[in-house]
Nucleic acid binder design. Structure first.
Lengths: 221, 221
DNA sequence: TTTCCAAGTAGAACAAGTTCTGATATGGGT
DNA sequence: ACCCATATCAGAACTTGTTCTACTTGGAAA
């Protein structure tokens, strides 16, 4: 029997994790070089496991063992499996952004450029569907306790999308809702495809469809 | 250590559940009256628990106990917590649809009617945010093993949205991608709000935004 | 250098989803 | 009324995410 008190305790614990757990070296950037290296090893191990077997194959004990770190330490760096996988996603997005940064797209139309970028990202995930599945399910399953980490992913994705569409500066504020919708659609299309709900063609059609939103005037906001 | 064989086994098990597990009375509609009643009791218990404490509070042992059913039986009816909560969602949608059926909306414009319906549904979830959280997280977290159940929810939602927009019949085929995008946005906006990523205003803005898609011509498909 | 504390380690313990076992009950066909 | 397949039951067992405990270590401050 779960009592209301139990639930209150759980909530307290989450609230405490909400901000920065002062005990977590991940909170403020790693003080020492070995800490940076540990964090890197953990992310790499998680990525490798996810890539090989998807969400279920990323088992905390195995991540710890593979990256040569005690289980308690793993949890000090990433307070849950969800946090860990969201961090993996953030890591991958940073690499993607670096890749995209120095190659401007040929298309003249913002919507077309955006669609192009998203298609490219989709293909990357097609190549490693299990990794994509692990990251996306973690992102969508995340609750309030991972709010900040999820927000970080959203910020980064938004930046990538704005880079790609390359809208004029003053247009951007009114477009934020549109960008969120595109981002949501992107995630949803990806998971729906990964979990066998829709075909590849449907997923790509949905992405094209939502990119049309850029062709309708921005809402007043 | 998780061996490749373990993962293969897990995959096999999922594949078997993919279609209809012949042992599951939920597969074909309940043979006996008591089975229908059991299923009903389980759904009600799960709904009540979810409503009180969200996803985490729906604990299988407690659902079983509350609904007066053995744990094994619960798993015979719903092969996982995810299946159970997706079934709860399906159940709620059926009720929503019945509620909506006999009250045509005043707005002349399809996009406006759709936005109106979604706003109403959003308010319903605002009233019971924990239930919404439980159902939505289950829906988005579902993997291939719950494919059919998730598909059922998508079909039902699509039917509700098409009812609401009341598009002319011949327009519909070309609109399916649009409806999917709207649905995805609807889900994503809801979870994002529930998990504290965006404000209520942003969620509603996103829904309005995506409804504009109806005002742009249907893609060739 | 010595001291001290946060960070790390090994491993047990706990929690909740899921599976398994062996016994019992139920309902449809003979 | 009897038989059998199948449904249900109570409860143990197993899995994996998470927490806890007791001990050790690295490195900065006195």
């Amino acid at each position: 029997m779960t009592t209301p008190q139990d639930r209150q305790d759980r909530q307290d614990r989450q609230d405490r994790q909400d901000g920065h757990d002062p005990r977590r070296p991940g909170g403020s950037p790693a003080r020492t070089e070995r800490q940076r290296a540990r964090r890197r090893r953990i992310l790499d191990a998680a990525t490798r496991l996810a890539s090989a077997g998807g969400f279920d194959a990323v088992q905390m004990r195995e991540v710890a063992e593979t990256s040569g770190v005690a289980l308690g330490t793993l949890y000090r760096y990433f307070p849950s499996k969800i946090h860990l996988l969201v961090a993996v996603l953030h890591d991958q997005l940073e690499q993607l952004r670096a890749n995209l940064r120095d190659r401007p797209l040929p298309e003249p139309d913002p919507a077309a450029r955006l669609a192009h970028t998203l298609r490219r990202a989709f293909r990357a995930h097609q190549r490693d569907p299990r990794l994509a599945e692990a990251m996306m399910r973690a992102l969508l399953f995340a609750d309030r306790s991972a709010r900040e980490e999820v927000r970080g992913v959203f910020r980064l994705t938004t930046a990538i999308l704005l880079d790609a569409s390359n809208l004029a500066g003053e247009e951007i504020p009114g477009r934020l809702s549109t960008v969120r919708v595109i981002q949501h659609t992107w995630h949803a299309a990806l998971v729906s495809w990964l979990s066998g709900q829709i075909t590849l063609e449907q997923a790509q059609a949905d992405i094209e469809t939502v990119c049309r939103l850029l062709t309708v005037p921005a809402p007043p906001d």
